[in-house]
Structure formats: C-alpha cells, structure tokens
Simulated scan of single mutants.
Amino acid sequence: MATPQSPTAPSRAVGTRRSLQAHALRLFEEQGYERTTVAQIAAAAGVSHMTFFRNFPTKEDVVLDDPYDPLLADAVGAQPRELSALERTRLGLLSTLEGLRSDDFDAESRQRLRLATSVPAVRARIWENMAKTQGAVVEVLVAQEVEPAVAEASVGAVLGALTSGLLHWGASDPSADGSRLADALEAALDVLAPRP
C-alpha cells in the first residue's frame, strides 16, 4: 500500500523544480549554457545533483520543461464537441493563455526562448517536446471520437502557429516591441480562426 504524501510534499516538489529552473536560467545567463554544469545548478538551488535528475532527466529539460501540456489537453477536452477539432484545439490553447499574463512570466519565457533557439542541444529537443504536446492533445480529441488523422493535422496546425508566434516573439527586442507573450500567441493563433 502506498504511503500517503504529506500535504506539503507536492508543493515542496513544485518549489524545488521552480528553484532549479530559476537558478539554471540565471547561471546560463551568467556563464553560458555549455559552461554551466548540473552540479552547479543543484548547488545554487541547495539540493543534490541526484535531486536535479529526479526533477529533470537532462540539462536541456530544465529549459524546456513546463507544466502546460496537461492544462492544454484538459482545455481542449473542455471545448464544445460541435466545433471542429482545429477550433477546439485553438480555443483550448487560447484559454490557457489567460493565466500567462505577467512580467515575470514574459521575462522568463524570453530567456528560455533565447536559449532554445541559440543552443543546438536545446533547439534539437524543441521538436521532441512539441511531439509530446501533440500526442497529449491528439489523445484527448481521439477519445472524443475525432478521426486520428484529423486530430493529428488539427493539433499540428495549431502547434505550428504557436511555435511561429513563440519564436517570433522571443527574437523581438522587448524594449522596442513591448508586446506580451500571450498577445503574440493570440495573434499567431488568430490566423487559424474561422472566417465569416
């Protein structure tokens, strides 16, 4: 029989993950991605390197990992079934953006995107992460009796627009642009909106 976790265990685990990510991003900015070791990140966060690996299987994962895939899949599943798979996916993603409007989120996202586009090891993993996201959302749509090929194409189109919006926003100059990530993603997803 499993031992019940204390009420603080999940929040402590989330806090550890956030701390590791924050320290990793700071160290990557200060020293460069390649010169920063997992041991340095763990030490800065006050945990062992084994704790790092319990939270993130690789150094790339500390940059790319986020908690949004289950939220996105749930949001897509909550959309009205009379809508097309494309529109359910688009609206599901838009609904998850509402919680992402803060200066801190934008600053961290821009930092992560700079790393994701400039570090070859991280850039190579972007597509692997997108495939996992796509699989999670396709699974929800197929469970709601959407033809698998239609689900794949619909989710692929939405994630393509999302990726384009992310990369464009991440490459822009924040002082000149001033836009929020959520606004940039909404604009990218608007391309896929049904037209009258």
Score class of each variant (00 low, 15 high):
residue 183 D to Y: 03
residue 138 V to I: 13
residue 102 S to R: 08
residue 110 R to G: 06
residue 64 L to N: 02
residue 188 A to K: 05
residue 74 D to P: 00
residue 77 G to Y: 05
residue 155 V to S: 00
residue 144 Q to M: 12
residue 71 L to I: 12
residue 92 G to R: 08
residue 175 S to N: 05
residue 114 R to G: 09
residue 136 A to P: 00
residue 90 R to H: 13
residue 146 V to N: 00
residue 96 T to Q: 06
residue 157 A to C: 05
residue 68 Y to P: 00
residue 171 A to S: 07
residue 96 T to N: 03
residue 158 V to P: 01
residue 132 K to F: 08
residue 75 A to C: 11
residue 67 P to T: 14
residue 183 D to T: 13
residue 174 P to D: 12
residue 153 A to G: 06
residue 175 S to W: 11
residue 114 R to C: 10
residue 97 L to I: 14
residue 194 P to L: 11
residue 152 E to I: 04
residue 119 V to S: 02
residue 79 Q to K: 09
residue 150 V to Q: 01
residue 69 D to L: 08
residue 70 P to V: 12
residue 96 T to A: 11
residue 148 P to T: 07
residue 119 V to N: 02
residue 196 P to S: 14
residue 85 A to M: 13
residue 79 Q to D: 12
residue 162 L to A: 03
residue 126 I to V: 14
residue 130 M to V: 13
residue 131 A to W: 02
residue 119 V to R: 00
residue 94 L to A: 12
residue 159 L to R: 05
residue 65 D to M: 09
residue 105 F to T: 10
residue 179 S to W: 02
residue 113 L to S: 07
residue 184 A to Q: 05
residue 72 L to F: 15
residue 135 G to C: 04
residue 154 S to N: 02
residue 66 D to V: 04
residue 72 L to R: 10
residue 154 S to T: 01
residue 93 L to M: 15
residue 62 V to K: 00
residue 184 A to N: 02
residue 62 V to L: 01
residue 87 E to Q: 12
residue 111 Q to E: 15
residue 72 L to D: 07
residue 121 A to W: 05
residue 114 R to Y: 11
residue 87 E to L: 06
residue 121 A to F: 05
residue 99 G to V: 15
residue 80 P to G: 06
residue 120 P to E: 07
residue 111 Q to K: 09
residue 169 W to Q: 06
residue 194 P to K: 10
residue 191 V to W: 12
residue 177 D to M: 06
residue 81 R to D: 13
residue 112 R to K: 12
residue 82 E to Q: 11
residue 190 D to N: 08
residue 171 A to H: 09
